[in-house]
């Protein structure tokens, strides 16, 4: 069996003709396997959805209970058959519930890793490499300039700045699903016990994380009740919000905020400067260059397919290291929001 007979790219996304399903399709399809809950991978309107219970809950929270006609939850490590094709989920370490889709048929194993990272994250299960014939990888940070520093050091920088500026609030822009909860959990792990203030758009997802036993400590809405409190109440506090809110009218309620942005892109100084970020926090839910290349070595696949991001550089690395790789040039996946 040729690899492309089991999975191949189509305009709607990666398609498995034998099992008649798509993985992370970018448009509505009859049957979808969803690796994780980020909007560019998990869309509403599919006939049937196979995903982890956590991802299922995230999709329901974002799109409403009717996001699909048929839900088929599958826990990490478990296996089902779809039209004679074995599908199982291995942890991807990206966000809560994120999984690699492992597709097995007649002795051929292909792994679609979705988005992933390798370093420990208190809010999700650690990535597990699965030996396979074809490994399908992302390449969001697929350039050797991206080597994410230690998470904990980044959090200590944030806390040091909070301590140094007791009169200012710290506005941390972070992707609402995953990054925000990870930051909160990491701050807790550094011993920060103060209440953390969150933007209204994050409440639902934070509650959802809590319902899966991820303890985020005391969270408060970053709002001023009519007639009560003053903007000065936010001085010396940490507020977590979606990146778009930092430049929104919403942000005006905070006194002279230190604009922080938690993203792997913050590694590039000009990116931080362009966005008016005063304290860049280099923190990513995607694998950096070393994590990507280590993973490719560990899974030791016969072929590497690169879905989105900086494909060209990762393919070049494979070439230099005697590995067969190609770019799938899938459209519809965004990396700017990271």
């Amino acid at each position: 069996m040729k690899f492309s007979e089991l999975l191949h790219p189509t305009p709607a996304g990666l398609y498995c003709p034998v099992g008649d399903f798509y993985i992370d399709p970018v448009r509505a399809v009859a049957r979808a396997v969803i690796t994780h809950g980020h909007a560019d991978h998990a869309r509403a309107g599919h006939g049937a959805v196979l995903a982890t219970p956590e991802t299922m809950a995230i999709m329901a929270a974002r799109y409403g209970e009717n996001f699909t006609n048929h839900r088929q939850p599958l826990a990490l490590g478990e296996k089902v058959k779809i039209n004679n094709v074995d599908v199982s989920f291995a942890p991807a370490g990206h966000v809560l519930g994120s999984a690699q889709a492992v597709v097995d048929h007649q002795g051929l194993t292909m792994v679609c890793s979705g988005d992933y990272k390798r370093r420990p994250d208190p809010t999700c299960q650690l990535f597990e490499p699965v030996p396979c014939h074809v490994f399908i990888t992302e390449a969001t940070f697929g350039l050797p300039v991206f080597r994410h520093p230690d998470d904990r050091a980044q959090m200590r920088d944030l806390l040091a700045s909070v301590k140094r500026n007791p009169d200012r609030s710290h506005l941390v822009g972070a992707y609402a699903l995953g990054k925000a909860q990870r930051i909160i959990a990491l701050l807790r792990a550094e011993g920060y016990q103060e209440p953390i203030y969150i933007h209204g758009a994050m409440q639902k997802l934070c509650d959802l994380y809590e319902s899966f036993d991820i303890n985020l400590g005391e969270l408060r809405p970053a709002t001023l009740k009519d007639g009560e409190g003053t903007p000065q109440d936010f001085a010396g506090k940490v507020i977590v919000c979606p990146p778009s809110a930092m430049q929104d009218k919403w942000a005006r309620r905070f006194p002279d905020p230190v604009i922080c942005f938690a993203s792997g892109w913050m590694r590039i100084r000009q990116r931080a400067k362009q966005r008016g970020v005063e304290l860049p926090l280099i923190l990513s839910d995607h694998a950096d260059w070393d994590e990507l290349t280590t993973t490719l070595e560990e899974v030791d696949a016969e072929e590497i397919w690169v879905t989105h991001g900086r494909e060209e550089a990762l393919v070049r690395w494979a070439e230099l290291n005697g590995r067969k790789a190609k770019a799938l040039s899938l459209v519809g996946y965004e990396d700017e929001a990271e």
Binding site: P144, V145, E312, A313, L320
Partner: peptide, 17 residues
């Protein structure tokens, strides 16, 4: 590798960085 260097430079846009 010069190709990887070139791709990186194109992305970052600053030699020192």
């Amino acid at each position: 590798d010069p190709v990887l260097y070139g791709l990186s430079y194109d992305f970052v846009g600053d030699m020192a960085e």
